[in-house]
């Protein structure tokens, strides 16, 4: 018999992969929301987000920015009385929206993560100036100026690399990646 997986189950599976308790175990105690240092900046706080997932409100969940504002500090995770790994859930939701290609367009998070990833796959290392320029133009004017000011200061202090670092066995490294994601060149 064909069964359709509900949204809540789909998200639950993301958590199972990380070894956490399913969201249905949530008792809505509010500890996660109360403890979250980014809560004030989220459109939906963790406790409510979990309720929304459990209720299967897929479209609403996909439209929130809350999980893209999660700093992965794991404060909620270590305090949840039900052992729900909320921080991993936030990671899971980020991956889920990238995978579905559905996230609010003005978010910097997804583009930033993708640039970071491309950089590692190319060189085996991350290179800060490349990162800076890739998100530079998505910033507002004020942030742009302050970023430039910081970059200048770091350079004066000798804290910016001139050349991107790369690992030595890069060819092996790239073939290793292809065994995980089998794609052509």
């Amino acid at each position: 018999m064909a069964t359709t997986v509900t949204f809540s189950q789909e998200i639950g599976n993301l958590l199972h992969a990380a070894g956490g308790t399913p969201v249905s175990a949530c008792m809505q105690c509010g500890t996660c929301s109360g403890t979250c240092p980014v809560g004030d900046f989220m459109d939906v706080r963790p406790q409510r987000l979990i309720r929304m997932i459990d209720a299967g409100f897929k479209d609403k969940v996909m439209a929130t920015r809350a999980f893209w504002y999660c700093a992965s500090c794991y404060q909620c995770t270590v305090r949840c009385p039900r052992g729900i790994d909320i921080a991993e859930l936030m990671y899971g939701l980020k991956r889920y929206t990238i995978w579905k290609n559905q996230y609010p367009e003005d978010l910097i998070g997804p583009a930033f993560s993708e640039t970071f990833v491309k950089n590692i796959v190319r060189t085996g290392r991350s290179y800060e100036p490349v990162l800076a320029t890739s998100y530079f133009f998505t910033l507002g004017l004020k942030e742009m100026l302050s970023e430039a000011q910081n970059a200048t200061m770091l350079m004066l202090k000798g804290r910016l690399p001139v050349l991107p670092a790369r690992i030595k066995r890069l060819e092996n490294f790239k073939r290793m990646i292809k065994r995980i994601i089998p794609i052509g060149d």
């Binding site: 990671y91 970071f116 990833v117 085996g124």
Partner: peptide, 25 residues
Amino acid sequence: EDWNCCGATAYFHVDELLAHTLCAR
């Protein structure tokens, strides 16, 4: 010798399996 980037938080935003592979190396 020849360590690679652990993927930071960014890699776990995109692909978990590959993120673990980077660390595992």
